[in-house]
Design a binder for these strands. Structure first.
Lengths: 213, 213
DNA sequence: CCTCCAATGTGCCTGATTTCACAATCTAAG
DNA sequence: CTTAGATTGTGAAATCAGGCACATTGGAGG
């Protein structure tokens, strides 16, 4: 398919989901998978799988399916998760600490190169091998020096914009925002908001519509 | 607007986002807000705000705007976040503990009535006032007895389906799934998946497209 | 070499969501 | 009371995403 077609954001999100079932298949010794089978594992339609992949090229073999190993490699290349991006996190409260140690980052070969908090009590604490908490005042300097790619915000809503601004000042182009605040940012920077309370509200809405007890 | 119109899921998600800026406005002493201003705070278009709200009724006053206090109340009523839903969480690792103590639940008046883990070391630990960790074998019995509305899954992918099945067995109709596994479930149950690694992959995709350093 | 079978890749249609644009309606001021 | 100005609520248009259905292609077997 032409490279110039606009690729739906939903496609990127789904493609990211394909990797895990594929890796599981590999562990089980399955070498080839059909769009039907992969769709089943992801609880979507097979046409969706094929359409999603077709945005980026032809990875399958007609009459056979997709080579699992190849497909994983292709998807990782597409997503850019085959590279090691450098991360910095600000806010080492309960959630921040849990995130820093979450295997989700490590499994992608990404690594934290810095951690910041404004609480003096926390400065100097080791959160990960080789990463000690530094004062928030150093965000700009350290991120610039280290060449941080992705900034992770894990502070309360009231401080989120301030942290985002410092990341931007340091030239960080991608932000993963766990605070429930929609940050202002220039075009050149991409922000992903992760707010489980939205999902929680969705569940409440569903329950309230007559599925509660 | 007619109540029978299909309401987009995206609308529910956005409406959930409206609450926080509205509460902030209230704190600042603002009593009335226009769709334009609210849209600005949420980084979306004003027509979107009006359309979203119009699915549920007419809450504004033409020429004036929306009463902030009323709008918050209406939205909470729509979402069902004005009720106290009972939660149970399974998996009290780093992330599970951080979640249990996250203000996102408390601020919605939701409360955890039970916590489970399969690690014998953890049984008996207090995670929240009045909530001690119980063995995972008791999930069905306790959830049934307590009348749990929402089950929170915070275990590794390999155990997610097992936990989901026990929630379903106990009659839980809503599940908040933090594991990176798409669980199987009947029509009558609603599952929301929260997987920040998908957002992380999105950022990597963006960076890989030429915005990296 | 030919036929049959399986599964992809994709044009096209359908349905859903967003955006536009404006009539309707309210407040305030003269 | 009338007019000006602001902002809502909503049909209609435009855009976008999803799903179908089938032509196409590769592999296996005779």
């Amino acid at each position: 398919m032409a490279r110039e077609t606009k690729i739906p954001n939903a496609t990127i999100e789904r493609i990211a989901l394909y990797v895990r079932p594929l890796e599981r298949l590999l562990e089980e010794g399955t070498d080839v998978v059909s769009s039907r089978k992969l769709a089943l594992l992801c609880r979507i339609r097979s046409a969706q799988v094929r359409k999603d992949l077709s945005y980026f090229g032809e990875f399958g073999v007609r009459g056979v399916g997709y080579d699992v190993r190849d497909l994983i490699r292709e998807i990782k290349r597409i997503l850019g998760t085959d590279r090691r991006w450098k991360l910095a996190i600000v806010g080492l409260g309960n959630m921040g600490k849990a995130l820093a140690q979450d295997p989700g980052f490590a499994s992608r070969c990404h690594r934290f190169v810095a951690a910041f908090d404004s609480d003096p009590e926390k400065i100097g604490t080791v959160v990960l091998p080789g990463v000690t908490i530094q004062p928030a005042t150093k965000i700009v300097r350290v991120c610039q020096m280290e060449g941080v790619h992705i900034g992770v915000i894990a502070v309360p809503a009231s401080q989120a914009q301030g942290v985002a601004d410092r990341f931007l000042e340091a030239g960080v182009k991608a932000i993963l925002n766990f605070s429930p605040f929609q940050v202002r940012k220039p075009e050149c920077c991409h922000v992903e908001n992760v707010d489980f309370t939205v999902s929680l509200d969705n569940l409440a809405y569903f329950l309230g519509r007559g599925f509660g007890r």
